[in-house]
């Protein structure tokens, strides 16, 4: 399969993730949608790496994975702190920065 097909698939997955971020109200589900978008980006990077015949794209995808792991750890910790304070994981309920 030509790399273009993979890039188009990545576009579709990215858009689905973006729609998920917009329509979901639960912070955990929004996070999952963001992960989907990051995965779509990785697929595009790997496809471009194959397209250009070098490994730079794969290295970038690797870094994206590492940064995503760090982001998820901090994000979920923030989510738990918010849940403790507000007893809700909905983004509508967290409308103040403190208390």
């Amino acid at each position: 399969m030509s790399p273009a097909a993979y890039v188009f698939l990545a576009v579709i997955l990215f858009v689905i993730g973006a729609i998920g971020v917009l329509i979901r109200r639960n912070a955990i589900l929004i996070f999952m949608s963001v992960e989907l978008m990051l995965n779509a980006c990785n697929l595009a990077f790997v496809s471009f790496a194959r397209l250009h015949g070098n490994l730079d794209g794969q290295v970038v995808a690797f870094f994206v994975m590492v940064v995503a792991a760090a982001e998820v750890v901090v994000g979920l910790a923030i989510l738990m702190a918010i849940y403790r304070a507000r007893r809700s994981a909905s983004v509508d309920d967290a409308n103040l920065l403190k208390y």
Partner: peptide, 28 residues
């Protein structure tokens, strides 16, 4: 990824993403 000639990333995807990140999600 494996089909596109990135076997290392394929394994990292399974181990880090599906294994660690998703389990963290499920925990939370």
């Amino acid at each position: 990824y494996a089909m596109e000639g990135a076997p290392f990333l394929a394994f990292v995807q399974v181990i880090v993403y599906t294994g660690a990140v998703l389990m963290l999600f499920l925990f939370v």
